[in-house]
Design a protein around this nucleic acid. Structure first.
Lengths: 178, 178, 178, 178
DNA sequence: TATGAATGAGGCTTCATTCAT
DNA sequence: TATGAATGAAGCCTCATTCAT
């Protein structure tokens, strides 16, 4: 995808069309304008979250689920394409409300699932949250994303960052060794 | 600053010049090009960090310093202008190495100071870090920033996010009540 | 008809097709191209002239026929749709010969009928033409049209322009009161 | 001027710029948009009317002035460039109010001068108008224009049309031989 | 050093027309 | 015959940058 290589604003509609294998004119039969192409991509991103949500909602011990989730989600975000796309979308969402809404709707789905997991963990005595489950869920996600940005923009290796991240998060949510 | 209102790519050099009170032609006597204006802004951002670094390096009990830092830095980032500018710069830094370098140099200064504080806290038995001080420092900053993005893009209130953030961080770094 | 509302060049073939209740593709089964749609409209305009020609060719006193004709033809042209369409066609006819020919063929039919009426009037001693009947016929039509353009573009009321027009024409053709 | 050769809508801004000897970009330093180029041309057309107005306002016998005016104005309009430009402007003025206003303002100047001349002729007993001087002025102009359109679009020769036109007009305004 | 008119490549989008179904 | 998705040239306009003054 050329938004990744060139960035949304640097990419011309001709490039988009060419990469999509459509003629320029036909691109406009599918999208009202360039902006809507990004919107559609953001919409597709939503589907990529489904496996993570599914993972969070599976049965089983909360700490194990949590650890697993952190690992796979971090690895997913460590792919430059995912981070860069997120940044492009975020950056555009600042001034385009429709993108903004979509952005938060996507995230809300993830937050909700993670919140439920944390809640369950608290009820089982597995976690000792320093704040509400929902707030904690937000922060967990933000931290994972922060690490991902670091790994991509700063060219660190997520592989090396992950243990520290997990330890930090475990401490933060008061995860108990069993 | 008009990059805030309109975004880097949507802002024309004429707007930049007008806002700066310089003539268009003269802008080019000060900067080789549009990109370099952003570079200069990123350079100026560095100075804005000085007070926070100073705060981190003051004497006094580490936990108190830490708490204070989190509060003021979060409040600083909660200003939309700071978040938006950071996003604009980040987004541009993806594909412009000079900006990228600057971005990381700026952050390194903050990380270094925070690392030292955490280190001191560990040595004093105030903190119980789940990972290396430097890694922890990175994560602390990333979490604060994550919350800031959330507050600005999602229109939450940092005032309300701050207690949860502090609690989460305290738990994460094993801050001990005294 | 959308050429009226939007103008020939501002109207897309899709609009034409939609308004005509035909599919876009099928429009091209009926017309070789956009231009030919206008050509066909000009062709249809010819039929609209038939009643006026019939009126001119009826028996009866020439001055009465003439007065009647001026009244109904002026009223017909006072409808914005007729004036606008004529202007669109004229404007296009400048550079499209087929339209131009059609335009003059339409007019010739009217001129011929009016010429005959004037001729008859002269023979009967009802009119005292300052020039040849045919030339006079042209000028009569041009004046009626001029008034119509005025009424439509300048938002005057044809109702108010008509008496002056008739008086002017009567004087011009030397119509005698009986 | 390329609007003459190609028509306003068929002419691209690049052609306009090229013909004007300006770069495309610079065209937009002088005009907000394509439409405004036509507007400016209409504005310039106003100046072309000045000699005719001056002629109408000179002293001397009204019939002679009138005859002279009809001759020169008809000859002026007989130039295809003037007729075509007028048609382009008229056609555009239908849906663009600013052009419409300009169009009528231009004409009003001519009408006013001609009205005064006719008035004077009436007072001197030279003319015997069948209607108000102003109405007559409008019609005189419309008829001259009608003949001009005829001569240009129909490829008649104004030289041949002029005597008939003058005779027709003389009859219409009741001009007396002295 | 300061100015802003000039440049022209490139921006996004529309549109008449074609053609596979 | 009827459809509308596909085409890509051409549409108008913006913009970073240059340069004569």
């Amino acid at each position: 995808m050329c938004f990744l290589e060139t960035g949304f604003h640097q990419t011309g509609v001709r490039d988009i069309a060419a990469r999509a294998g459509v003629s320029l004119g036909n691109l406009y039969n599918h999208f009202p304008g360039k902006h809507d192409v990004l919107l559609e991509i953001a919409r597709l991103e939503r589907q990529e979250l489904d496996p993570f949500i599914a993972l969070l909602e599976k049965d089983g011990p909360a700490p194990k689920r949590f650890g697993k989730f952190v690992g796979v989600y971090a690895k997913y975000l460590a792919a430059p394409e995912n981070v860069i796309l997120t940044i492009e979308i975020t950056s555009e969402a600042i001034r385009k409300d429709d993108l903004g809404e979509l952005f938060w709707k996507n995230r809300a789905a993830l937050v909700a699932a993670l919140t439920r997991l944390l809640q369950r963990g608290v009820e089982n005595g597995d976690f000792n949250l320093p704040t509400s489950p929902e707030e904690a869920a937000h922060m967990v996600l933000e931290l994972i994303e922060g690490r991902a940005y670091h790994s991509v923009l700063g060219e660190a290796k997520m592989r090396k960052l992950l243990p520290g991240l997990k330890a930090f998060l475990s401490a933060a949510i008061g995860a108990k060794a069993r």
